[in-house]
Amino acid sequence: MHLLEGKGVTKYFGGLAAVSGVDFYVDKGEILGLIGPNGAGKTTLFNAISAALKPTRGKIFFKGRDITPLPAYRICRLGIARTFQTVKIFPHVPVIRNVMVGALFGTGHRLSAREALKKAEEVLEFVDLTDYKDVPAGDLTLANQKRLEVARALATDPELLLLDELMAGLTPTEVAEASGDIQQLRQRGITIIMIEHVMQAIMSVSDRIIVLDYGKKIAEGTPQEVAANEKVIEVYLGEECDVAS
């Protein structure tokens, strides 16, 4: 049984098929990359998995259980956490309490305030934000706000973590750091699906990659297979020449 499996996932916005009949899966311990041009439907697929929106058709299974009808908070408590392409933090709330939200509400079992604080401090340490723990989250730099989102997601004790363009807008050094962090998360037993435009990063980190274009899955395989795939090269030609590099 796959950890997460989607069957024929489809989402229409009016007449537009943002995601169209996509089958996908991810196995425990894997890092799955999700790439595709702008507007390909990557974020929409994340939204469908995390129940930010209901798919028009198709079903999504988590550990064999149909989670399609569940609301977002239940999905989170089951063990699927996410970050957002445009960061969604609680700006006037101190950093530590942003993370405590995840620990207090998202784990699926009830933590005391003390346990939640401990957990929050732990994950802040992991993302290296301990120095900022009492600062209002809105005062952080964008790079740090992204780390905070990761911390909040981690505080919910996820089995599966969905990262939506974590590396966009980061400096090369920060990208390298983030890649290291992702590998480390996998070592902790967390399965990851990541959307990324930074090709070099996703090619080096992912075990397997799925390519979307106009809502359809056009390729799937190891980074090498995908990079050599004709359709993929065609789609990316003239847009980004990163794939080859």
């Binding site: 995390s50 930010a52 609301p71 977002a72 908070y73 989170c76 408590r77 956490a81 996410r82 957002f84 969604k88 933090i89 609680f90 700006p91 006037h92 709330v93 939200v101 995840g102 207090l104 509400f105 998202g106 784990t107 699926g108 909040r152 997601a153 919910t156």
Partner: peptide
């Protein structure tokens, strides 16, 4: 109040 969507995805039964 600060970000309802993020609250829901962090496990709050909004």
């Amino acid at each position: 109040g600060e970000y309802e969507e993020a609250a829901a995805h962090s496990g709050i039964n909004v």
